Amino acid sequence: MRPRVFCGIAAAVALFATACSSGGSGSGDSSNGGGATQASAAGAFPVKVVDCAGKETSVKQAPKKIVTTDAAALEMLLELGAGDRIIGTGFPPGKGSLPAAVADQGAKVPVLGDTMIPKEKLLGSGADLYVDTFGPMPGMGAAGAGPTEEELKAAGIQHVLLLSTACASGPKAAKGPRTDLAEVENDVRRLGAVTGTAARAEELVGAMEKQIGEVRTATAAVPEAQRPGYFVFDFDAGTKQPMAICGKQVANAVITLAGARNVFADCEGDFKPVSWEDVVAKNPDWIQLAVRNRGSEEANRKAFDEAEAFLKSFPATQGLKAVQEGHFLRLGSEVTTIAGIRNADTVRQIAATVHPTLVKNGQ
Rank of each mutant, 00 (worst) to 15 (best):
D345N: 08
V335T: 12
D345P: 06
G340F: 05
D345A: 06
L320R: 12
R330N: 02
Q318T: 15
E325H: 13
S333L: 08
F314W: 13
K312C: 03
E325A: 15
A339I: 08
R342V: 00
G319A: 03
A322W: 10
L320Y: 09
R330Q: 02
I341K: 15
Q318L: 01
G319I: 01
T337N: 14
F328C: 00
K312M: 01
Q318R: 12
G340N: 05
G340A: 03
F310S: 05
F314R: 14
K312G: 12
A322T: 04
Q324A: 13
L311P: 07
I341L: 12
I338V: 14
A339M: 07
F310N: 10
G319M: 02
H327D: 00
I338S: 14
E325V: 06
S333H: 05
Q318G: 12
H327M: 02
S333G: 10
R330D: 03
A344E: 03
E334A: 15
I338R: 15
L331Y: 01
G332N: 10
G340Y: 06
A316I: 00
K321C: 05
K312W: 05
S333R: 12
P315F: 00
F328T: 03
I338W: 15
F314G: 11
R342H: 13
A322I: 01
R330E: 06
H327G: 01
A322V: 01
V335R: 15
G326C: 06
F310G: 05
P315Q: 02
F314Q: 13
A322Y: 03
S313N: 14
A339T: 12
G332F: 11
A344W: 08
R342P: 10
Q324L: 08
E325N: 14
L329I: 01
I341C: 13
G340D: 05
A344M: 08
L320V: 05
L320I: 01
R342K: 15
R330K: 04
G340P: 10
E325K: 15
Q324N: 01
F310A: 03
Q318A: 11
I338G: 05
F328G: 00
D345Q: 13
T346F: 00
I341H: 13
K312S: 09
R330V: 00
P315W: 00
T317M: 04
S333K: 02
T336L: 04
T337Q: 14
E334W: 12
L311K: 02
L331G: 12
S313Q: 13
L320G: 07
A322S: 07
T337F: 09
F310M: 11
L331E: 07
F314I: 06
T346Q: 02
F314C: 09
F314E: 13
T337Y: 13
Q324W: 01
